[in-house]
């Protein structure tokens, strides 16, 4: 089980120039002691295939109820939830329904007493995950 976040390598700095990496600055203490207030991390942006995201990964995500708020949390559990998707069909009078399995994530801060997370707002949909923290920025 890997809880630490690796340090930035030279290649990570190079990759930061690509659109698939973004930097975020941590504000607050809910990820203490691994990440302190003011620390910066490099995030691998969600490429719509989050299969690489695993339990114990640290992710950056949108708050489920306040989409303008970006949070950083650790994934504690992943589940598959069946959802019904309505898609427009070629015929204007009919609609097509499809059942698909969507991944949902239970996220928590490392510092439980100083964190608002899935214990309060529940499981988080996949589309709210911005990306996975790959390393600490220098």
């Amino acid at each position: 089980m890997r809880l630490e976040i690796s340090d930035c390598r030279f290649v990570d700095l190079i990759l930061l120039l690509s659109p698939f990496r973004r930097r975020f600055r941590v504000s607050g203490l809910s990820m203490s002691p691994v990440l302190q207030d003011g620390d910066e991390v490099i995030v691998k942006i969600n490429d719509r295939s989050l299969s690489s995201v695993r339990v114990n990964d640290v992710v950056v995500l949108y708050h489920p109820d306040r989409h303008n708020l970006i949070m950083i949390k650790r994934i504690k559990d992943i589940c598959l939830k069946k959802t019904t998707v309505v898609t427009p069909s070629k015929s204007p009078k009919t609609i097509e329904q499809a059942t698909m399995k969507a991944r949902q994530y239970f996220v928590q801060g490392d510092n439980l007493s100083a964190s608002t997370d899935s214990r309060h707002f529940g499981w988080v949909d996949e589309n709210l995950i911005i990306g996975k923290v790959v390393c600490r920025f220098l």
């Binding site: 600055r25 910066e40 949070m71 608002t116 309060h120």
Partner: peptide, 27 residues
């Protein structure tokens, strides 16, 4: 790497990811 990182931090401030309690959810 350290030199480059410092310059990046100075020129391009990172977006904030909140790691606060209570405030975000208001529950």
């Amino acid at each position: 790497s350290n030199l480059i990182a410092q310059q990046i931090k100075n020129w391009f401030p990172a977006q904030v990811a909140s790691a606060h309690c209570d405030g975000p959810c208001g529950v």
